[in-house]
Design a protein around this nucleic acid. Structure first.
Lengths: 213, 213
DNA sequence: GACTGTGAAGCCATTCACAGCT
DNA sequence: AGCTGTGAATGGCTTCACAGTC
């Protein structure tokens, strides 16, 4: 193990590996090779080994990796050995979908509340998750030790609610609104832009590259 | 303009530029520089210029880019000068959210139908979009010239419905199920994995790098 | 003077290929 | 013999810096 700089792409792949390893655990598989992992995630064996080697020597030469051990290690690396409190800002369709998304709960993300300004929604529940007034968000975040805010409001409102999250002391923001936002550097921040992937598909269809691999 | 290989990252950024340029049009702004675009999308000016230069000389030295012209060019590059028919497989929360997502319609993506196996949902409408039986999907796709399929079913069912899409002659698939899928090479394919970004945030929070930029 | 377009340089990530361990 | 861990080589993307144009 070396203490080099770790590519962001490596972290994204570790997340995928961890999900795949979880599947293997459920199937009762004990040992796995980098070849098998690569097959399971559409990656390459060398990359799997390199990604893991940034963090330690988890495998046994000639044998492979112990599935359960590796899963534990990878989830720990990703910070998923503890749970995280989450709020969702915006109780629209996307916010609603995310509040019910199984994949989040399974990985230790607890969505404690959603916030909106629509009086018709405030006071209701979506599944288990209460919809509260945006006015109460700051206090709620402080009191409940919320680390992550997910922004699903319109592009217009996104910077404003993000500023509120930051003011409340949030540690990380995941933004689904299609705008560039600014946050102070101590706050972790990512955009997820759904339209971007659609555009990539259309570009590739139009530029119908006749490549084979 | 050169006929080099174009980085995928460039295409993803072009999508973001196009959205930003659209905002500028709405504000009535006529001319824009690479510096301004970079500011608006959290990018660098050199990168903006390089990205655009893959496709032509759209700017005027000493002046900048004409906003409307550039917008037209970029949307054309991305294949967004025509509309695209889309179906969504899986009428759960995420499928529902995507079917109502404004960002898709604005960019010329017409969601014609959703497909599910839940008898309680089949025959209903979500907004304008009818929910139909998965059994009728293949015929529907052929008859309506559907190019893009969005998969929002469970990980278990994802490969099966993707095979159906492929059999029906779909040209591109956007998969939200957290599994690696296989499709023939002539079909454009991307995964969008929501949990991955959450994991990236937690990794960065835990490994609280004290970098400044 | 301002701002684009672009070759060259620099940087980062992936792949290769093999030594090392079981 | 099988499979990991890793330095070295490769490939690709981004940034630099400046010539070219208005």
């Amino acid at each position: 193990m070396k203490s080099e700089k770790i590519p962001e792409a490596t972290i994204l792949r570790l997340s995928v590996y961890s999900r795949y390893l979880n599947q293997l655990i459920n199937k009762g598989i004990i040992t796995v090779s980098s070849d098998q992992i690569a097959d399971g995630v559409n990656g390459s064996p060398a990359q799997v080994r390199k990604d893991l080697a940034y963090f330690g020597e988890f495998g046994v030469r000639g044998v492979g990796y112990n599935v359960k051990d590796l899963y534990k290690q990878v989830t720990k690396i990703l910070g998923l050995d503890s749970t995280w409190n989450v709020v969702i800002v915006g109780a629209g369709n996307l916010g609603t979908a995310l509040s019910q998304y199984k994949g989040f709960v399974e990985r230790g993300f607890n969505t404690l509340a959603m916030f909106d300004i629509d009086k018709g929604k405030i006071g209701t529940r979506i599944g288990e998750v209460p919809v509260l007034s945006l006015e109460d968000m700051e206090e709620f975040i402080r009191k409940n030790n919320v680390a992550i805010g997910i922004v699903t409001v319109s592009a217009r409102a996104a910077q404003e609610v993000t500023d509120l999250l930051v003011k409340a002391g949030i540690k990380a923001v995941l933004n689904f609104a299609p705008v560039a936002l600014s946050v102070p550097q101590h706050v972790e921040f990512r955009n997820v832009d759904l339209a971007v992937y659609m555009d990539l598909l259309t570009f590739n269809m139009v530029n119908n590259k006749q490549l084979q691999d």
